[in-house]
């Protein structure tokens, strides 16, 4: 507990608030400054009405509410939401970077396979040996061609269907990162907030989980009716779980767009007065 830095009731109250707001970050600091300004203004008004200094400060504090009551809402409101926001944003960026890296590296490998194969053929052991294709035992299948055979044997070169997915991964990753750059917020202090608005984060959860729910549930239902598959129960469970997450995210989006507008008596049942 912090030792009070002043003798007045307001100073002691602010010290109490300071202790209770530990760990709440910028939101806590902001509330502390606002509380100080509010209490000093209210006390000054009370003194102007004829109260002595201590009575004026006590009246201001009584009207402000207990420190425990006021600060409870701040810590509860910031920690969980901020953590969830950071988690979703981090997953979003990591997915974009991984998809871009996977797709771009696959495309680069495929594109570089031609000059790389020619280099291998022409300069076995980096030029110390003659051209491999001029050796009598290569190629073993003359109709295939030396170059195609060597290139086909390179284990790192994507082949056939595999290589078709790389551009899509790269474009998908690029789109994810571009969308994130577009939806970043600029705060009132003109600094960049890396987490997008809560409604957008909700959409980022609702869309992929909603699509996954549809696909997995469809697989599960198909397995139930058409053929008894081993994975049917897993598909159904995962599909229902994804649907639950998607529905929860959609409810959050609605909550943030109009702050729970569905019923007037429950306009905002959140952690506030």
């Amino acid at each position: 507990m912090t030792t009070p830095t002043g003798d007045g009731p307001v100073e002691q109250y602010l010290d109490d608030m300071f202790d209770r707001l530990a760990g709440t970050g910028p939101a806590g600091r902001r509330l502390l400054v606002e509380a100080e300004t509010h209490l000093l203004t209210a006390a000054a008004e009370a003194r102007a009405r004829g109260l002595d200094a201590e009575a004026a400060e006590r009246e201001a504090i009584d009207r402000f509410g207990t420190a425990a009551h006021v600060t409870r809402h701040v810590s509860a409101a910031t920690d969980a939401r901020a953590s969830l926001g950071r988690l979703v944003t981090g997953t979003w960026i990591a997915t974009g970077v991984l998809m871009l890296w996977w797709g771009a590296s696959g495309m680069a490998t495929w594109l570089l396979s031609w000059p790389w194969t020619r280099l291998l053929i022409a300069t076995d052991r980096f030029g110390t040996q003659p051209d491999m294709c001029s050796r009598p035992w290569v190629p073993s299948n003359p109709t295939l061609g030396c170059f195609a055979q060597y290139r086909g044997n390179l284990s790192l070169v994507p082949v056939e269907g595999d290589r078709n997915s790389y551009p899509w991964f790269a474009v998908g990753g690029l789109l994810l990162l571009a969308v994130w750059l577009l939806v970043r917020r600029s705060t009132v202090l003109r600094t960049t907030a890396w987490t997008p608005k809560p409604a957008i984060l909700g959409l980022a959860l609702a869309i992929p989980f909603g699509l996954a729910a549809l696909i997995m549930t469809a697989y599960g239902v198909k397995g139930l009716y058409w053929q008894a598959q081993d994975g049917t129960l897993s598909y159904l469970t995962a599909g229902l779980l994804a649907a639950g997450i998607s529905i929860a995210a959609i409810r959050r989006i609605r909550g943030f767009s109009l702050t729970a507008p569905t019923a007037v008596p429950a306009l905002s049942t959140g952690p506030h007065c």
Partner: peptide, 24 residues
């Protein structure tokens, strides 16, 4: 409407997080 005045500030902060209010 004599609410505890201190609870209005967290409510304003929450409205700001929801994008309904800006502050400086």
């Amino acid at each position: 409407f004599d609410v505890p005045e201190g609870t209005v500030y967290p409510a304003l902060h929450r409205l700001e997080r929801a994008g309904l209010v800006v502050s400086r």
